[in-house]
Nucleic acid binder design. Structure first.
Length: 303
DNA sequence: TTCCAGGTACCCC
DNA sequence: GGGGTACATGGA
């Protein structure tokens, strides 16, 4: 790295699992290294994070360089949601709910990262009707094509996520170098829409009125309820949001016995059962369903 | 070959 | 306003 790299350390951090948190599909940019650490570019800065299970310590090396060490610590504390009492969240959700208890047993190390709205919006736009490994590949290709080079780590070049303006001036055919297929048209149009105010309104999402920002998201090309919920949950800390995709739909049907086609009913159930913690419940269910599927596939191979 | 993946736009009734 | 369907791509 060309810029100075500094270390931030969070000791006594419980309820954290690096693989679950970085690979559960909330963020697509964290890459696992041979030593078990994870590397990403966050806010245009290099970051490498390692969680020591024995010592319950998360260490973050980055070239993120605000004015003071205190601000640096504050930034990562916020990004990794360090101060939230996940033990309490899990106890509350699992209370009287054996399904959730089982899901949390398999996914209880997930923390909801505080991601950037623009990156989250584009990432989940690309995620539609797509699978996680391929989404990661598409986003990497997008960053390599249109993002600024940040540096080199472990022999890999790292790229920042492309800015709104940099994508807004690309045509659909140019954007499709990252092989996102029919979504290239959505992304070209969406970039122009968001660029009208330079991404200013999107950036205020966390403090703006939730309904207003939700309505705004739904006006954007290629953005429907699912993508909007993901942006609200993963970038704007609207933890009561409950994105429903094929996995969560399956969970609600197979585990809670809801009618598979009734998305409105699922949202109502989530509101009623999980309340303000619906977003966390969604993550636990999503990850749990994927773990189950992987286990079942493995069983089939053995037979 | 067919099915599937962190869905949405668009057309038709 | 609901219900069907096309939409690129690549792995299983």
């Amino acid at each position: 790295m060309t810029r100075e790299v500094t270390e931030v350390r969070f000791c006594g951090l419980r309820d954290f699992d690096a693989r679950q948190t970085f690979e559960c599909g909330q963020s697509f940019r964290w890459t696992r290294e041979a030593n078990g650490s994870y590397t990403a570019v966050v806010q245009g800065c290099f970051a490498n994070a390692f969680y020591n299970n024995e010592e319950d310590t998360l260490t973050v090396w980055s070239d993120y360089m605000p004015k003071s060490e205190a601000l640096r610590e504050k930034f990562w504390r916020d990004y990794f949601d360090i101060d939230r009492d996940y033990a309490h969240i899990k106890r509350t959700l699992a209370d009287g709910d054996p399904v959730m208890e089982e899901a949390i047993f398999h996914a209880g190390g997930i923390r909801i990262l505080h991601q950037e709205p623009w990156e989250t919006l584009v990432s989940f736009l690309i995620s539609q009707n797509n699978n996680i490994p391929r989404i990661r590949g598409c986003i990497e290709a997008l960053c390599e094509a249109f993002g600024d080079e940040v540096g080199t780590f472990s022999g890999r070049k790292l790229y920042a996520f492309p800015t709104v303006a940099s994508l807004a001036r690309r045509r659909e055919e140019e954007i499709d170098v990252c092989k996102i297929g029919y979504r290239a048209r959505y992304l070209a149009e969406l970039s122009r829409q968001v660029n009208i105010d330079g991404g200013a309104f999107l950036a205020t999402g966390e403090t703006a009125d939730t309904d207003k920002i939700a309505d705004y998201l739904l006006t954007l090309s290629g953005v429907g309820p699912k993508v909007a919920h993901c942006v609200l949950l993963f970038a704007m800390r609207k933890f009561e949001r409950f994105p429903i995709d094929v996995w969560v739909r399956r969970a609600m049907h197979q585990l809670y016995g809801l009618y598979e086609e009734d998305e409105d009913g699922m949202h109502a159930f989530a509101r009623e059962r999980f309340g303000d913690l619906a977003g966390f419940a969604q993550m636990y269910l999503f990850h749990y369903m994927r773990v189950r599927e992987a286990f079942t596939a493995h069983e089939n191979v053995i037979e």
